[in-house]
Computed example of a mutant assay.
Amino acid sequence: MTPALALALAGLSLIDSTSFGTLLIPIWLLLTPGRLRLGRIVAYLATVAVFYFCVGVLLTLGADAVLTVVRAAVATIPPPALKAGQLALGVAIIALSYWLEARARRQEGSPGKVQRWRARAMSGGGSARSLMSLALLAALLEVATMLPYLAAVGVIANADLGWQLTGAALAGYCLVMTLPALVLAVARLTAHRAVEPLLQRTNDWLTRNLARVLGWTVGGLGIAVALNAVASLLLES
């Protein structure tokens, strides 16, 4: 694995570390009044990391077959038509970003399943099963928008690292993805009074801007795809 590849994967994993499931819910758990139960935070993050790792392994297993089929199909399409299709895909992704942001804004403040499971997991009588269920639900809700992770899996698959390095790269990605929440948990445990205001401000900002960040992330991908297609069409014309 080259340093450039490792740096790219680290950057993508740090972007993933700021998502709803990997940062916002852990901050909610850390803001629970009273003594911090570090084991619960670790169990939650471990569940999310294992889920992501398993999804990455499944995607990597099918990547070669999918890429072979896609390359064969693309070879039969004229380049202008292919770029036009890419442009349409980019526009569709941009439209999807607006829909995702609007849906997230409509659901703000509603006591959905995530909120109910979070309350159960944070309560004194909450079980490890409730916490792991919350982690799995958060990860499942993010599957459709885990764009940095999908990009990382694509980079790893194209690098042809071999199975041992591929597994290590996926595991390292998932570990780095959970590091910010782990660091905040340790800080909350060792310096409660100093860290709690920072956690509250971070929670307030993420709660206010999560829908916007989601829209920007998906929309940015769509803009990149569309601009690449437009540039290619202009150069070929």
Rank of each mutant, 00 (worst) to 15 (best):
Q164K: 08
G154R: 03
L210K: 04
A128R: 14
A92M: 11
Y173H: 05
S232H: 13
V195E: 07
L227I: 14
L58N: 10
L67N: 09
L182A: 05
A10Y: 07
G11C: 11
V57W: 10
D64N: 14
S232D: 14
A171F: 14
L87A: 12
A187V: 06
A157I: 10
F51G: 02
V91P: 00
Q200D: 15
P180G: 02
G85H: 11
R208V: 03
A75E: 11
A121E: 01
A84M: 15
R118N: 14
G62L: 11
L89S: 10
S127N: 09
Y149F: 15
A169T: 02
P148L: 05
G126F: 02
A159K: 04
E196D: 10
S127A: 11
A128E: 13
L233E: 08
L221K: 02
V114N: 02
I25H: 00
L100Y: 11
L96Q: 04
F20I: 07
Y149I: 07
A10E: 07
Q200H: 14
I94W: 06
A119T: 07
S110H: 12
G56K: 01
G154E: 03
P111Q: 10
L12S: 02
C174G: 01
L134F: 02
V218A: 03
A119H: 06
S232I: 01
I156Y: 02
E108A: 15
L82K: 07
D64H: 15
L165S: 06
L96C: 08
G11K: 10
